[in-house]
Design a binder for these strands. Sequence first.
DNA 1: CTGTCGCATAAGTCGTGGCTTATATTGCGT
DNA 2: ACGCAATATAAGCCACGACTTATGCGACAG
Lengths: 104, 104
Amino acid sequence: MLEADLFRTLSDPTRRAVFERLVPREMSVSELKSGFAISQPAISQHLAALRGAGLVCERREGRFAYYRAEPQALAPLVDWVDRYRLFWPERIEKLKRVLEDMEP
Amino acid sequence: MLEADLFRTLSDPTRRAVFERLVPREMSVSELKSGFAISQPAISQHLAALRGAGLVCERREGRFAYYRAEPQALAPLVDWVDRYRLFWPERIEKLKRVLEDMEP
DNA sequence: CTGTCGCATAAGTCGTGGCTTATATTGCGT
DNA sequence: ACGCAATATAAGCCACGACTTATGCGACAG
C-alpha cells in the first residue's frame, strides 16, 4: 500500500533527479540548487516532498541544511517490482548473476 | 532515461491497479471495468497509456479486446531500483532468500 | 545591533492529467 | 437490415501539483 506514496513522489523527473543526486553523498540545499534551473523554493518543496516519503533526511548545522538520500525508503517500491519480477524468468537469472558476483 | 515514462505511467493508482490485474491473466475491457468504479472510457484511456509505455498489449478477437500485462516492460524501472539496491545490503539478503525459494 | 545569508513557508498562477458525457466504429445476433 | 454490444476517440471540466514571487525566520559576520 505504501508504494503509492513512492510512485507519486518519484513520478516527477526533477524530484527524482534531486533524490539521485543525494544518493552518493549529502549536500546542502544551495549546492543542490546549482545544477538545477529552478528557484530555491522549488528545491525546498521537492525536498519536503521527498522527506515526507522518507526518501531523504536532513541534518541541521547552523543555517545550513544538509540532505542525504535514504535508499531503504525504496523498500515498498522494491517489493512491488520484485512481485512482477517473478513473472519474468530471464530477469531473475540476471539478478542471480549479480548476487553471485557480490559474495566470495 | 526511459524509466521516466514508466514512473509517469505507473504514478496513477488506478492505472497501476489495472496493470496489476492484467499480470496473472489476460482480460477483456468490460471484464476489467467490473471491479473499478470508473467509466469504460476511463478504462480505455488507462489502457492506452499503459500500451504507450509498452506495459500491456492487446489481442483483438471480434469486437472484444483482450489485454495482458508485459512485465518485461518494467525493465528500466527494475534497472533503476537495482541501481540503488546496491546502497542497501540487507535488501540483497532478502532477495537471495526469495530466489532460493524458487528453485528446488 | 544590524544586515545578509541559507533555507522554509505562503500565496497565487498555470499547465497537465484523469475524469466525465457524447459520439464514432466495428462486430455479432436475430 | 436493424439494433445492440464492446471498445475507442473527442471534447470539456475540474482538481492537483509544480513553479513563481514574496515573505518569514534563525544563524553568522561586521
